[in-house]
Amino acid sequence: MEEIPQNIREKAIKATENLLPVKSRQQYDREYGIFGIWKDANAIVQITETVLMAYFQELSEKYSPNSLWTKYSTLRSTLMVYKNIDVSQYHRLISYLKVKSKGYVPKKSKVLEGEQIIKFIKKAPDDIYLVHKVILVMGVFGGLRRDELVKMTIDDIEDRGTVLVIKVPETKTSTSKSFAINEEDLGALNLIKKYAALRPAGIKERRFFLTYRKSRCTVQPVGKNTIGSVPTLIAKFLKLDNAEAYTGHCLRRTSSTLLVEAGASFEMLKQHGKWKSSSVAEGYIEESISSKNKVAKMIVNLVNSEVNSVSTIENSLMDNLQTIQNSVSAATSTITKNTDHSIVGSATFSGTFQNCNFYFGNKIG
Rank of each mutant, 00 (worst) to 15 (best):
L258A: 14
K214P: 01
P231H: 00
A188C: 01
E205I: 06
E170R: 11
T254G: 05
P231R: 06
L251I: 01
C217Y: 05
N242V: 10
L198Q: 00
S255G: 13
G202Y: 05
L186F: 11
Y212D: 07
E183H: 10
L233F: 11
K239Q: 09
Y246Q: 11
S178K: 04
L238W: 08
S176M: 12
N225Q: 15
K193L: 03
T171F: 04
R206V: 06
V219T: 13
L210N: 06
L240F: 08
S229H: 14
L210M: 11
K172S: 10
S174V: 06
E170Y: 05
C217H: 03
G228L: 07
V219Q: 08
P221N: 02
I227S: 07
S176D: 15
K172L: 09
L186W: 01
R199H: 00
K177P: 03
Y195C: 01
S255L: 05
C217M: 13
H249P: 12
L198A: 02
E205Q: 10
P169N: 08
R216V: 12
N182P: 01
G223P: 13
F208K: 02
T226K: 08
V165D: 05
I234R: 04
R207G: 00
G223L: 09
A243V: 07
K172N: 04
A201W: 05
F179W: 02
A245S: 13
F237Y: 15
V260G: 03
A196E: 10
R207N: 10
G223N: 15
K204S: 15
T226Q: 12
E183Y: 07
L210Q: 04
E183S: 10
N242L: 12
A188Y: 03
A243Y: 05
H249N: 09
L210I: 00
A235I: 09
V222E: 00
V260P: 00
Q220E: 15
T211H: 14
V222G: 06
K193N: 03
S229Y: 14
L164Q: 04
T257Q: 11
A201H: 06
H249S: 09
G187K: 03
A235N: 13
T254P: 08
T175N: 13
T218V: 00
L189V: 09
V260N: 07
A180G: 02
L164T: 07
H249V: 13
F208M: 10
K167R: 08
K239C: 07
A201F: 00
T173I: 04
R206I: 02
T173L: 06
A243S: 15
L164E: 08
L191K: 07
K172G: 06
I181V: 02
D241I: 10
L259P: 07
E205L: 07
A188G: 01
V219F: 02
F209K: 01
T247P: 12
L240W: 02
S215I: 04
K214A: 14
A180Q: 10
I203S: 12
V168K: 01
E184K: 14
L189S: 08
T211K: 15
A235L: 09
K194V: 08
S176R: 12
F237P: 05
A235P: 11
L191P: 08
L186N: 07
S215D: 13
V168F: 03
R216E: 15
P200Y: 07
C217I: 11
V222D: 00
K193C: 05
L259E: 02
A188S: 13
G248E: 04
V230R: 10
V219Y: 03
T254W: 12
G202Q: 08
T175V: 14
K214E: 15
A180M: 11
I203A: 03
G202D: 09
